[in-house]
Nucleic acid binder design. Structure first.
Length: 911
DNA sequence: TGGACATCCTAA
DNA sequence: TAAGTTAGGATGTCCA
């Protein structure tokens, strides 16, 4: 290798001496982070005896030009013990899958002519070996209903006609496909949209040669196809819009990140390419995975994530960060500004610390205890070595902070500028160049989001910034702010503006930069651990059945589609393709008109738990139970067979047909209950985390089913369902208010007339007229139980908490002291919708309002709040504004914004 | 100056 | 080609 290695040694210079050696830039003691790094070395030294990993093995010798030959042993994966595929089964946890178009491999299932789709699965064995599995013979398909008068003997004519239509439709046919339609079979299915008297009708299952042929075939059939003696007929397509990977997973009971077993004798091991070249019989390895195999789709076994199969393989997680030497005041540009450092941390999932810690530097750099320092004279050598490093350590998950939109594209563009050979091959497929694509992703939920996408086949990019943007609402998303928020820890203190100066200094100043860079690679790992990202995302993938990477690259709908298809398949129900067009919005939830004011009495809060899912379950609301106009007469249904919802839509009862959606929801909520019980019993903290991640994923999934039916620009909108759900919800909150106010009265022997002072969607706030929190809790519990009895199970009203005191400012704006675990002490001060929780105010306003609320609610000193507000303002404006009211508005916000706003902008501009 | 409308962000 | 829902407050902008 063309670089010098400087290994930081645990027995190196004591901290006090290192300090003296440093340049002018460094006037502070070694940071806590440096001590942490050093400590990791010590821990490792102790464990060194036990480490079995890291010995060079014959199975992972260098691969052509993509990997250099002088490899630190630690970087390698453990040696492969699999030698005899006839005798040994191969089990691995799949973490990523995709498909490609290749040619038939003899001995495998599937078409023997022309291009064929091949599913490619990447995963890790329990021993930590990487696996690439080519799965053969699975072909894409969709359905159309047979038209009336269709006979079995028409099939071959139909197939021929469709085949030639599809081929004629192709603009070019460079693969010279002659068999676009592989098969047409009649099968009996039912449309899941609407109740049709449970009538199974004949459908044609049309199997195509390639996934990309589905769309034209569907289009041609919709436009109308004529064949044989039949007149032209327009067909409606079913399940023609399902991603090929999802189709494969659903059909084979595979869920994201589950374990796959390849039985002995059923799979074939690929070898490194030999001189005689690849043969059809035995294709050679195309990936960098240690184990590469071929199998027919029908031979693999998928294990549901239960019992022992809940385990997680020792995935390798790489976190990295780069530094560029930008020009003063200009954002670095890859065609001008060099990459000067790349810091890397590699962790085995489940372990506490990274086992590889290093930093690639341009120019010399003093040693850092706890980290390897790899120095390079030339930038192109640095980049080449880094790409080699990535391919060698072979990560399953790549993380970092904003790597997707900054670090990765920058490296690729920079390498291109410098013409670094073989740089942009960062995935597991040797021939696949990693390229940058722009993608814009738009949804009502997240607005328009422009992103860069870089393909790294077989490795999941798990950009922590993207995770945080999706899952957390934060004031600031800088790595510094986020680290402080979750870890109470900060970045190493290096101003962006001095990075270039540090680089141009000496090996000590570059060392300081390296420590900073290392910390930026380290923090994302810490955050992932703290927020349990890998575990939670894996559980979400397992619960919803989609690949891990979909969770970050796709929206909410795909998760519901995946579950819906799985449930539908069991009952021979098929999903229609609907053209989505935005229409009229429907009515949502009721917000009870608040009786605004300051309440110095306990207020009980009663909530319907999982309101929308329980409504759908209680009333059997589903696509499959929906009665479209005329259906009641058509199927001779009597009034006791169906219900009419508050919006006038009709659905058959479960006694006639049990809906898919209620079934899905029951499964999710039952599984959640199970996970929670298991969680209570579990003592192993790691398994606890897994279970907690699971119960959360189950809850979130249940709640997104309603949103799916209401998504008008979606895969299968059904406004009858969603508006019925909100309709029931509106009725229920009204009824709850009435019930509470009618029972808890003086006339009925209670201490006072109860009053519902506010309520939103699924909750009511009740003034019960008793003076203590304890009494309020007692009556609240009783009331919740009594009200519940008026509704169909599993609908349940629960007592949740008492607010005392309670400040009700407006709809969706209130604050109060929150009592739930104890009647004596409050758990927290709860603020909803107020400036303190909004991110469109400067922190000054949030803090001011927060302090005011504390004074009012905790100190019970409203005048103190006014005084405080006055003080703050006079600090700012020398008393020019007269505040006579408690409610602070516009004037202050705007003034404070001007004051603090600039700072906020600087922060935002950082990345 | 006030109303219509857009934008942002939250509650649920 | 892909995108969960509506309600609603606070504020900002435009225009008669």
């Amino acid at each position: 290798m063309d670089f010098k290695r400087k290994k930081g040694q645990a027995s190196g210079l004591p901290a006090s001496q290192t300090k003296k050696l440093r340049g002018d830039w460094d006037d502070d003691a070694p940071s806590q982070f440096e001590e942490e790094l050093a400590f990791m070395d010590e821990v490792e030294a102790e464990m060194a005896m036990e480490l079995s990993e890291g010995q060079l093995s014959a199975d992972v010798l260098p691969v052509g030009k993509l990997i250099s030959d002088n490899i630190p042993p630690k970087w390698l994966r453990p040696p492969v013990s699999l030698t005899d595929p006839k005798e040994q089964t191969l089990c691995f946890q799949q973490v990523e899958l995709d498909h490609y178009v290749g040619s038939h491999v003899s001995g495998m299932l599937g078409a023997t002519q022309g291009p064929v789709p091949i599913i490619r699965m990447f995963g890790i064995t329990e021993e930590g070996n990487s696996v690439c599995c080519h799965i053969h013979g699975f072909a894409p398909y969709f359905y159309v209903p047979c038209h009336t008068g269709f006979k079995q003997e028409d099939l071959s004519d139909f197939k021929k006609e469709l085949n030639s239509a599809v081929i004629k439709d192709m603009r070019s046919n460079k693969d010279s496909i002659s068999q676009a339609v592989l098969a047409v079979d009649v099968c009996h299915k039912e449309n899941m949209y609407g109740y049709h008297g449970k009538k199974i009708i004949p459908f044609m299952k049309i199997t195509m040669a390639l996934p990309r042929l589905i769309a034209p075939a569907k289009r041609l059939l919709e436009q109308g196809l004529r064949f044989g003696r039949h007149p032209t007929h327009c067909y409606q397509a079913y399940e023609a819009n399902i991603d090929f990977e999802i189709r494969f997973m659903v059909d084979n009971d595979i869920v994201g990140c589950n374990w796959i077993e390849l039985p002995a004798g059923k799979y074939r091991l690929r070898k490194e390419s030999q001189d005689e070249g690849p043969s059809k019989e035995n294709p050679s390895k195309v990936s960098l995975a240690q184990i590469e195999v071929d199998i027919s789709w029908a031979d693999l076994i998928s294990h549901p994530a239960e019992g022992d199969w809940q385990k997680i393989a020792p995935l390798r997680v790489l976190s990295f960060d780069i530094e560029c030497a930008g020009r003063k005041g200009v954002f670095p540009e890859p065609d001008k500004d060099p990459v000067i450092q790349i810091a890397n941390m590699v962790l085995r999932q489940g372990e506490k610390d990274a086992f590889i810690r290093n930093v690639f530097t341009l120019g010399t750099c003093s040693s850092i205890v706890g980290s390897q320092v790899l120095c390079f004279d030339r930038e192109d050598a640095l980049l080449k070595a880094w790409a080699d490093f990535v391919r060698t350590i072979d990560p399953d998950i790549i993380t970092g902070y904003n790597i997707q939109n900054f670090d990765m594209p920058y490296l690729i563009n920079r390498a291109q500028t410098l013409k670094v050979p073989n740089f942009p091959f960062l995935g597991r497929i040797r021939s696949m160049k990693s390229v940058i694509r722009d993608s814009s992703f738009q949804s009502k939920q997240m607005g328009r989001r422009e992103n860069k996408v870089i393909n790294t086949e077989g490795r999941v990019q798990f950009d922590l910034l993207q995770v945080l943007l999706r899952d957390y609402k934060l004031r600031s998303y800088t790595l510094n702010a986020v680290s402080f928020h979750f870890l109470q820890e900060q970045k190493e203190d290096v101003q962006h503006s001095i990075i270039t100066d540090l680089q141009n200094g000496n090996e000590q100043t570059r060392r300081r930069l390296a420590v900073y860079c290392l910390k930026d690679a380290y923090l994302p790992l810490r955050l992932m651990e703290k927020l349990m990202c890998v575990i939670n995302y894996m559980e979400m993938a397992r619960v919803t059945g989609v690949p891990l990477s979909y969770l970050l690259s796709r929206g909410q709908q795909i998760k519901v589609v995946s579950q819906l298809l799985r449930q539908a398949m069991k009952q021979d129900l098929v999903m229609p393709v609907v053209k989505s067009e935005g229409g009229e919005d429907y009515t949502g939830a009721t917000v009870i008109e608040p009786l605004k004011g300051y309440y110095d009495v306990p207020i009980a809060t009663l909530d319907f738990s999982s309101l929308y899912p329980s409504i759908m379950m209680a009333h059997n609301l589903c696509y499959t139970t929906l009665l479209q106009s005329g259906s009641i007469d058509k199927y001779g249904l009597s009034p006791e067979d169906f219900i009419k919802t508050p919006t006038g839509d009709c659905f058959v009862k479960a006694s006639i047909r049990k809906g898919l959606l209620p079934e899905i929801l029951e499964n999710l909520l039952c599984a959640r209950k199970r996970a929670k019980t298991e969680l209570k019993k579990e003592t192993d903290p790691f398994k606890q985390k897994v279970l907690d991640g699971r119960q959360l994923a189950l809850k979130v999934s249940a709640n997104s089913v309603y949103g799916f039916t209401g998504a008008q620009v979606g895969k299968l909108p059904c406004l009858e369902i969603s508006q019925s759900v909100t309709g029931f919800g509106r009725q229920m909150i009204e009824k709850t208010k009435q019930l509470v106010e009618s029972k808890y009265t003086l006339d009925n022997g209670y201490k006072a007339d109860a009053k519902v002072i506010y309520g939103d969607t699924d909750s009511v706030m009740c003034k019960l007229g008793v003076q203590t929190v304890g009494e309020t809790m007692e009556i609240g519990r009783e009331a919740a139980e009594w009200v519940s009895s008026h509704f169909t199970p599993p609908i349940k009203l629960e007592f949740e908490k008492v607010y005392f005191p309670y400040l009700l400012i407006n709809k969706k704006r209130y604050a109060g002291l929150y009592f739930s675990s104890s009647a004596n002490t409050h758990d927290k001060m709860d603020c909803k919708g107020i400036e303190t929780v909004r991110r469109d105010n400067c922190p000054l306003v949030a803090n001011l309002i927060n302090t005011c609320l504390q004074k009012i609610l905790i100190d019970r000193d409203p005048m103190g709040a006014v005084e405080h507000a006055k003080d703050v303002i006079s600090d700012l404006l020398c008393n020019r504004i007269d505040i006579s009211q408690l409610v602070i508005t516009k004037e202050l916000t705007r003034t404070a914004d001007e004051y603090a706003g600039k700072q906020a902008h600087v922060e935002l501009a950082e990345r």
